[in-house]
Design a protein around this nucleic acid. Structure first.
Lengths: 172, 172
DNA sequence: CTAGCACGGTTCAATCAATGAACTAAAGTG
DNA sequence: CACTTTAGTTCATTGATTGAACCGTGCTAG
Protein backbone atom coordinates (compact mmCIF):
# COMPACT_ATOMS: atom_id res chain seq x y z
CA UNK A 1 0.00 0.00 0.00
CA UNK A 2 2.38 2.59 -1.01
CA UNK A 3 1.18 4.95 -3.61
CA UNK A 4 -1.56 6.45 -1.57
CA UNK A 5 0.59 8.54 0.67
CA UNK A 6 2.38 10.43 -2.01
CA UNK A 7 0.00 10.44 -4.90
CA UNK A 8 -2.48 12.07 -2.56
CA UNK A 9 -1.45 15.57 -3.48
CA UNK A 10 -2.32 14.86 -7.09
CA UNK A 11 -5.85 15.95 -7.86
CA UNK A 12 -5.94 13.69 -10.85
CA UNK A 13 -8.03 10.73 -11.90
CA UNK A 14 -5.04 8.93 -13.28
CA UNK A 15 -3.21 9.16 -9.96
CA UNK A 16 -6.29 7.89 -8.16
CA UNK A 17 -6.54 4.94 -10.51
CA UNK A 18 -2.86 4.16 -10.10
CA UNK A 19 -3.10 4.16 -6.34
CA UNK A 20 -5.37 1.17 -6.76
CA UNK A 21 -4.16 -0.72 -9.76
CA UNK A 22 -0.71 0.74 -10.32
CA UNK A 23 1.13 -1.52 -7.95
CA UNK A 24 3.46 -4.20 -9.11
CA UNK A 25 1.58 -7.32 -10.31
CA UNK A 26 -1.89 -5.85 -9.87
CA UNK A 27 -2.70 -5.33 -13.54
CA UNK A 28 -1.50 -8.80 -14.39
CA UNK A 29 -3.84 -10.25 -11.78
CA UNK A 30 -6.68 -8.32 -13.38
CA UNK A 31 -5.65 -9.46 -16.85
CA UNK A 32 -5.80 -13.06 -15.66
CA UNK A 33 -9.19 -12.46 -14.10
CA UNK A 34 -10.41 -11.17 -17.47
CA UNK A 35 -9.29 -14.39 -19.09
CA UNK A 36 -11.29 -16.27 -16.50
CA UNK A 37 -8.74 -17.22 -13.88
CA UNK A 38 -10.52 -17.40 -10.55
CA UNK A 39 -8.58 -19.49 -8.09
CA UNK A 40 -5.64 -18.56 -5.91
CA UNK A 41 -3.57 -21.48 -7.07
CA UNK A 42 -4.15 -20.70 -10.74
CA UNK A 43 -3.10 -17.08 -10.38
CA UNK A 44 -0.06 -18.33 -8.51
CA UNK A 45 0.99 -20.85 -11.12
CA UNK A 46 0.29 -18.66 -14.12
CA UNK A 47 1.94 -15.49 -12.82
CA UNK A 48 4.88 -16.85 -10.82
CA UNK A 49 4.01 -14.30 -8.21
CA UNK A 50 5.12 -14.63 -4.58
CA UNK A 51 2.29 -15.97 -2.45
CA UNK A 52 2.42 -13.11 0.02
CA UNK A 53 2.12 -10.56 -2.76
CA UNK A 54 -0.76 -12.40 -4.40
CA UNK A 55 -2.67 -12.53 -1.11
CA UNK A 56 -2.13 -8.84 -0.53
CA UNK A 57 -3.18 -7.88 -4.07
CA UNK A 58 -6.28 -10.05 -4.13
CA UNK A 59 -7.32 -8.59 -0.80
CA UNK A 60 -6.78 -5.03 -1.99
CA UNK A 61 -8.71 -5.64 -5.21
CA UNK A 62 -11.62 -7.12 -3.29
CA UNK A 63 -11.63 -4.19 -0.93
CA UNK A 64 -11.56 -1.80 -3.87
CA UNK A 65 -14.58 -3.50 -5.44
CA UNK A 66 -12.69 -4.71 -8.50
CA UNK A 67 -12.84 -8.37 -7.57
CA UNK A 68 -15.57 -10.22 -5.76
CA UNK A 69 -14.56 -13.07 -3.45
CA UNK A 70 -17.16 -15.75 -3.21
CA UNK A 71 -17.67 -19.27 -2.04
CA UNK A 72 -18.06 -21.67 -4.92
CA UNK A 73 -18.22 -24.91 -2.97
CA UNK A 74 -18.74 -25.84 0.65
CA UNK A 75 -17.00 -29.19 0.96
CA UNK A 76 -14.25 -28.34 1.27
CA UNK A 77 -14.92 -24.60 1.47
CA UNK A 78 -13.35 -22.87 -1.49
CA UNK A 79 -13.41 -19.26 -2.58
CA UNK A 80 -12.97 -17.78 -6.00
CA UNK A 81 -12.19 -14.28 -7.19
CA UNK A 82 -14.37 -12.87 -9.94
CA UNK A 83 -14.27 -9.50 -11.67
CA UNK A 84 -17.03 -7.10 -10.71
CA UNK A 85 -18.62 -4.74 -13.21
CA UNK A 86 -16.18 -2.08 -12.10
CA UNK A 87 -13.32 -4.47 -12.78
CA UNK A 88 -14.66 -5.39 -16.20
CA UNK A 89 -14.61 -1.76 -17.17
CA UNK A 90 -10.85 -1.90 -16.94
CA UNK A 91 -10.89 -3.75 -20.24
CA UNK A 92 -10.47 -0.62 -22.39
CA UNK A 93 -7.41 0.73 -20.57
CA UNK A 94 -5.82 -2.69 -20.28
CA UNK A 95 -6.41 -3.37 -23.93
CA UNK A 96 -5.02 0.02 -24.93
CA UNK A 97 -1.88 -0.60 -22.89
CA UNK A 98 -1.42 -4.05 -24.37
CA UNK A 99 -1.88 -2.65 -27.85
CA UNK A 100 0.78 -0.04 -27.22
CA UNK A 101 3.14 -2.73 -25.94
CA UNK A 102 2.47 -4.84 -28.96
CA UNK A 103 3.18 -2.03 -31.38
CA UNK A 104 6.34 -0.79 -29.77
CA UNK A 105 7.91 -3.55 -27.76
CA UNK A 106 7.36 -6.63 -29.81
CA UNK A 107 8.35 -7.75 -33.24
CA UNK A 108 6.49 -10.99 -33.62
CA UNK A 109 2.94 -9.81 -34.21
CA UNK A 110 -0.01 -10.04 -31.82
CA UNK A 111 0.10 -12.76 -29.20
CA UNK A 112 -3.63 -12.87 -28.67
CA UNK A 113 -6.49 -12.11 -31.02
CA UNK A 114 -9.94 -11.11 -29.86
CA UNK A 115 -13.16 -11.95 -31.65
CA UNK A 116 -16.65 -10.61 -31.19
CA UNK A 117 -18.72 -13.69 -30.42
CA UNK A 118 -22.04 -12.29 -31.54
CA UNK A 119 -20.80 -11.65 -35.07
CA UNK A 120 -17.58 -13.62 -35.37
CA UNK A 121 -15.49 -10.63 -36.41
CA UNK A 122 -11.99 -9.98 -35.22
CA UNK A 123 -11.62 -6.78 -33.17
CA UNK A 124 -9.45 -4.00 -34.51
CA UNK A 125 -6.51 -2.74 -32.43
CA UNK A 126 -8.70 -0.26 -30.57
CA UNK A 127 -10.97 -3.12 -29.46
CA UNK A 128 -13.82 -2.06 -31.69
CA UNK A 129 -15.73 -4.55 -33.76
CA UNK A 130 -15.42 -3.40 -37.37
CA UNK A 131 -18.66 -5.15 -38.30
CA UNK A 132 -20.80 -3.78 -35.47
CA UNK A 133 -19.07 -0.45 -34.98
CA UNK A 134 -19.20 -0.90 -31.21
CA UNK A 135 -16.75 -1.74 -28.49
CA UNK A 136 -18.16 -5.03 -27.23
CA UNK A 137 -18.05 -5.84 -23.53
CA UNK A 138 -15.59 -8.44 -22.28
CA UNK A 139 -18.18 -11.19 -21.94
CA UNK A 140 -18.89 -11.09 -25.67
CA UNK A 141 -15.28 -11.71 -26.62
CA UNK A 142 -13.25 -14.77 -27.36
CA UNK A 143 -9.45 -14.88 -27.09
CA UNK A 144 -7.46 -16.94 -29.51
CA UNK A 145 -3.74 -17.44 -29.73
CA UNK A 146 -2.12 -15.07 -32.23
CA UNK A 147 0.93 -15.45 -34.46
CA UNK A 148 3.24 -13.79 -31.92
CA UNK A 149 2.50 -16.22 -29.11
CA UNK A 150 5.51 -18.19 -27.99
CA UNK A 151 4.43 -19.36 -24.59
CA UNK A 152 6.59 -22.11 -23.26
CA UNK A 153 4.71 -22.27 -19.98
CA UNK A 154 2.97 -25.44 -18.99
CA UNK A 155 0.73 -24.33 -16.17
CA UNK A 156 -2.94 -25.14 -16.65
CA UNK A 157 -3.92 -21.58 -17.56
CA UNK A 158 -1.27 -21.21 -20.25
CA UNK A 159 -2.21 -24.54 -21.73
CA UNK A 160 -5.91 -23.71 -21.77
CA UNK A 161 -5.19 -20.39 -23.49
CA UNK A 162 -3.62 -22.18 -26.43
CA UNK A 163 -7.20 -22.90 -27.49
CA UNK A 164 -9.90 -20.32 -28.17
CA UNK A 165 -11.58 -19.31 -24.94
CA UNK A 166 -14.46 -17.06 -24.03
CA UNK A 167 -13.36 -14.20 -21.81
CA UNK A 168 -14.46 -14.34 -18.17
CA UNK A 169 -15.58 -17.96 -18.35
CA UNK A 170 -13.82 -20.08 -15.75
CA UNK A 171 -10.28 -21.06 -16.59
CA UNK A 172 -8.80 -23.61 -16.63
CA UNK B 1 14.39 -1.97 -12.59
CA UNK B 2 12.50 -4.71 -11.03
CA UNK B 3 9.68 -5.93 -13.12
CA UNK B 4 11.82 -7.27 -15.85
CA UNK B 5 13.10 -10.24 -13.98
CA UNK B 6 9.80 -11.69 -13.06
CA UNK B 7 7.47 -10.50 -15.74
CA UNK B 8 9.82 -12.11 -18.19
CA UNK B 9 8.04 -15.40 -18.15
CA UNK B 10 4.87 -13.66 -19.31
CA UNK B 11 4.58 -13.80 -23.06
CA UNK B 12 2.18 -10.90 -23.01
CA UNK B 13 2.19 -7.41 -24.46
CA UNK B 14 0.67 -5.98 -21.33
CA UNK B 15 3.47 -7.38 -19.19
CA UNK B 16 6.04 -5.97 -21.60
CA UNK B 17 4.44 -2.55 -21.43
CA UNK B 18 4.31 -2.68 -17.66
CA UNK B 19 7.97 -3.52 -17.40
CA UNK B 20 8.60 -0.12 -18.91
CA UNK B 21 5.87 2.14 -17.69
CA UNK B 22 4.39 0.18 -14.81
CA UNK B 23 6.78 1.38 -12.16
CA UNK B 24 5.77 3.73 -9.42
CA UNK B 25 5.62 7.35 -10.63
CA UNK B 26 6.41 6.56 -14.26
CA UNK B 27 2.93 7.13 -15.66
CA UNK B 28 2.59 10.39 -13.77
CA UNK B 29 5.82 11.61 -15.32
CA UNK B 30 4.41 10.76 -18.73
CA UNK B 31 1.13 12.47 -17.93
CA UNK B 32 3.03 15.62 -17.04
CA UNK B 33 5.04 15.39 -20.22
CA UNK B 34 1.76 15.23 -22.14
CA UNK B 35 0.65 18.44 -20.49
CA UNK B 36 3.90 20.01 -21.61
CA UNK B 37 6.13 19.76 -18.57
CA UNK B 38 9.71 19.49 -19.79
CA UNK B 39 12.14 20.48 -17.09
CA UNK B 40 13.51 18.46 -14.20
CA UNK B 41 12.58 21.06 -11.65
CA UNK B 42 9.01 21.33 -12.89
CA UNK B 43 8.42 17.61 -12.73
CA UNK B 44 9.90 17.70 -9.27
CA UNK B 45 7.71 20.49 -7.97
CA UNK B 46 4.51 19.28 -9.58
CA UNK B 47 4.82 15.64 -8.61
CA UNK B 48 6.46 15.83 -5.19
CA UNK B 49 8.61 12.95 -6.29
CA UNK B 50 11.96 12.18 -4.65
CA UNK B 51 14.80 13.52 -6.76
CA UNK B 52 16.57 10.20 -7.01
CA UNK B 53 13.44 8.50 -8.29
CA UNK B 54 12.77 11.23 -10.83
CA UNK B 55 16.31 10.96 -12.19
CA UNK B 56 16.03 7.21 -12.50
CA UNK B 57 12.62 7.37 -14.21
CA UNK B 58 13.58 10.09 -16.67
CA UNK B 59 16.68 8.11 -17.59
CA UNK B 60 14.71 4.92 -18.10
CA UNK B 61 12.10 6.68 -20.22
CA UNK B 62 14.78 8.22 -22.40
CA UNK B 63 16.44 4.86 -22.80
CA UNK B 64 13.12 3.30 -23.72
CA UNK B 65 12.53 5.90 -26.42
CA UNK B 66 9.49 7.41 -24.72
CA UNK B 67 11.17 10.69 -23.86
CA UNK B 68 13.78 12.56 -25.75
CA UNK B 69 16.41 14.50 -23.78
CA UNK B 70 17.66 17.52 -25.59
CA UNK B 71 19.58 20.70 -25.04
CA UNK B 72 17.37 23.74 -25.21
CA UNK B 73 19.94 26.39 -24.30
CA UNK B 74 23.70 26.51 -24.07
CA UNK B 75 24.36 29.28 -21.55
CA UNK B 76 23.97 27.82 -19.08
CA UNK B 77 23.53 24.35 -20.64
CA UNK B 78 20.04 23.08 -19.94
CA UNK B 79 18.28 19.93 -21.02
CA UNK B 80 14.61 19.25 -21.42
CA UNK B 81 12.61 16.06 -21.70
CA UNK B 82 10.08 15.85 -24.51
CA UNK B 83 7.71 13.05 -25.48
CA UNK B 84 8.65 11.11 -28.59
CA UNK B 85 6.06 9.81 -31.03
CA UNK B 86 6.14 6.50 -29.19
CA UNK B 87 5.44 8.33 -25.96
CA UNK B 88 2.59 10.30 -27.49
CA UNK B 89 0.91 7.10 -28.44
CA UNK B 90 0.47 6.39 -24.77
CA UNK B 91 -2.32 8.95 -24.79
CA UNK B 92 -5.11 6.43 -25.45
CA UNK B 93 -4.21 4.05 -22.60
CA UNK B 94 -3.52 6.89 -20.18
CA UNK B 95 -6.77 8.56 -21.07
CA UNK B 96 -8.68 5.30 -20.68
CA UNK B 97 -7.18 4.74 -17.25
CA UNK B 98 -7.98 8.28 -16.16
CA UNK B 99 -11.53 7.89 -17.39
CA UNK B 100 -11.95 4.70 -15.39
CA UNK B 101 -10.60 6.47 -12.31
CA UNK B 102 -12.95 9.34 -12.83
CA UNK B 103 -15.98 7.11 -13.15
CA UNK B 104 -15.26 4.88 -10.22
CA UNK B 105 -13.05 6.69 -7.75
CA UNK B 106 -14.27 10.23 -7.82
CA UNK B 107 -17.52 11.92 -7.03
CA UNK B 108 -16.91 15.46 -8.08
CA UNK B 109 -17.06 15.23 -11.86
CA UNK B 110 -14.19 15.46 -14.31
CA UNK B 111 -11.13 17.39 -13.20
CA UNK B 112 -9.91 18.12 -16.68
CA UNK B 113 -11.80 18.58 -19.92
CA UNK B 114 -10.25 18.07 -23.34
CA UNK B 115 -11.20 19.98 -26.45
CA UNK B 116 -10.40 19.33 -30.07
CA UNK B 117 -8.65 22.50 -31.19
CA UNK B 118 -9.41 22.14 -34.87
CA UNK B 119 -13.16 22.13 -34.31
CA UNK B 120 -13.63 23.39 -30.76
CA UNK B 121 -15.62 20.36 -29.65
CA UNK B 122 -15.25 18.72 -26.27
CA UNK B 123 -14.00 15.13 -26.44
CA UNK B 124 -16.25 12.35 -25.22
CA UNK B 125 -15.03 10.05 -22.43
CA UNK B 126 -13.37 7.71 -24.90
CA UNK B 127 -11.29 10.62 -26.22
CA UNK B 128 -13.13 10.75 -29.53
CA UNK B 129 -14.25 14.00 -31.01
CA UNK B 130 -18.03 13.74 -31.45
CA UNK B 131 -17.95 16.30 -34.26
CA UNK B 132 -15.13 14.77 -36.28
CA UNK B 133 -15.67 11.13 -35.39
CA UNK B 134 -11.93 10.68 -34.93
CA UNK B 135 -9.60 10.31 -32.00
CA UNK B 136 -7.45 13.42 -32.38
CA UNK B 137 -3.74 13.27 -31.59
CA UNK B 138 -2.46 14.92 -28.44
CA UNK B 139 -1.09 17.96 -30.19
CA UNK B 140 -4.57 18.92 -31.40
CA UNK B 141 -6.02 18.98 -27.91
CA UNK B 142 -6.48 21.62 -25.28
CA UNK B 143 -6.91 20.86 -21.57
CA UNK B 144 -9.16 23.00 -19.48
CA UNK B 145 -9.98 22.73 -15.80
CA UNK B 146 -13.15 20.74 -15.16
CA UNK B 147 -15.77 21.03 -12.43
CA UNK B 148 -14.11 18.35 -10.28
CA UNK B 149 -10.79 20.11 -10.03
CA UNK B 150 -9.86 21.08 -6.50
CA UNK B 151 -6.16 21.60 -6.80
CA UNK B 152 -4.71 23.45 -3.90
CA UNK B 153 -1.18 23.20 -5.22
CA UNK B 154 0.72 26.32 -5.99
CA UNK B 155 3.65 25.05 -8.04
CA UNK B 156 4.01 26.70 -11.42
CA UNK B 157 2.60 23.76 -13.36
CA UNK B 158 -0.54 23.51 -11.25
CA UNK B 159 -1.11 27.21 -11.54
CA UNK B 160 -0.63 27.21 -15.30
CA UNK B 161 -3.10 24.35 -15.66
CA UNK B 162 -5.85 26.43 -14.11
CA UNK B 163 -6.05 28.10 -17.50
CA UNK B 164 -6.74 26.39 -20.82
CA UNK B 165 -3.55 24.99 -22.25
CA UNK B 166 -2.59 23.26 -25.44
CA UNK B 167 -1.24 19.77 -24.82
CA UNK B 168 2.49 19.26 -25.35
CA UNK B 169 3.27 22.95 -25.55
CA UNK B 170 5.87 23.96 -23.01
CA UNK B 171 4.62 24.34 -19.46
CA UNK B 172 4.81 26.46 -17.44
C1' DC C 1 -8.44 -44.66 11.66
C1' DT C 2 -4.60 -42.73 9.70
C1' DA C 3 -1.41 -41.03 6.23
C1' DG C 4 -1.11 -38.20 2.66
C1' DC C 5 -2.54 -34.56 -0.28
C1' DA C 6 -4.75 -30.34 -2.33
C1' DC C 7 -5.79 -25.84 -1.47
C1' DG C 8 -5.35 -21.36 0.35
C1' DG C 9 -3.23 -19.07 2.87
C1' DT C 10 0.54 -16.85 6.82
C1' DT C 11 5.26 -16.08 8.61
C1' DC C 12 9.87 -14.81 8.35
C1' DA C 13 14.64 -13.51 7.04
C1' DA C 14 17.06 -11.52 3.25
C1' DT C 15 17.18 -8.49 -0.52
C1' DC C 16 15.90 -4.62 -3.16
C1' DA C 17 13.62 -0.13 -4.03
C1' DA C 18 11.77 4.31 -2.33
C1' DT C 19 12.19 8.25 0.52
C1' DG C 20 13.92 12.69 2.11
C1' DA C 21 17.61 15.32 3.48
C1' DA C 22 22.03 16.83 2.54
C1' DC C 23 25.52 17.60 -0.65
C1' DT C 24 27.81 18.70 -5.39
C1' DA C 25 28.68 21.12 -9.54
C1' DA C 26 28.28 24.32 -13.31
C1' DA C 27 26.99 28.67 -14.70
C1' DG C 28 24.90 33.25 -14.25
C1' DT C 29 23.62 37.48 -11.47
C1' DG C 30 24.07 41.63 -8.42
C1' DC D 1 32.87 37.68 -4.47
C1' DA D 2 28.79 36.02 -2.46
C1' DC D 3 24.46 34.19 -3.90
C1' DT D 4 21.05 31.89 -6.78
C1' DT D 5 19.21 28.64 -10.16
C1' DT D 6 19.13 24.23 -12.17
C1' DA D 7 20.07 19.51 -12.35
C1' DG D 8 21.56 16.25 -10.51
C1' DT D 9 24.20 12.46 -6.90
C1' DT D 10 24.92 10.35 -2.33
C1' DC D 11 23.52 8.23 1.70
C1' DA D 12 21.11 6.45 5.77
C1' DT D 13 16.44 5.03 6.93
C1' DT D 14 12.23 3.02 5.96
C1' DG D 15 9.21 0.13 3.45
C1' DA D 16 8.04 -3.44 -0.12
C1' DT D 17 9.15 -7.69 -2.54
C1' DT D 18 10.92 -12.26 -2.64
C1' DG D 19 11.21 -17.20 -1.90
C1' DA D 20 11.21 -20.72 1.20
C1' DA D 21 9.12 -22.82 4.91
C1' DC D 22 5.27 -23.56 7.64
C1' DC D 23 0.07 -24.01 8.95
C1' DG D 24 -4.83 -25.57 8.93
C1' DT D 25 -8.84 -27.44 6.89
C1' DG D 26 -11.08 -31.01 4.92
C1' DC D 27 -11.10 -34.68 1.46
C1' DT D 28 -9.44 -39.45 -0.10
C1' DA D 29 -7.14 -43.93 -0.36
C1' DG D 30 -5.56 -47.84 2.22
Amino acid sequence: MALGKNYEGQDCSLAKALELIGERWTMLVIRDAMYGVRRYGDFLAHLDIPRAVLSQRLGALVEAGILDKRRYQDHPPREEYVLTDVGRELWPPMQALAHWGERHLSSTGPRRLFFHLTCGTRLDPTAHCPACGTRPPLEDLEVRPGPGLESSRDDAVSVALREPHRMLTPLP
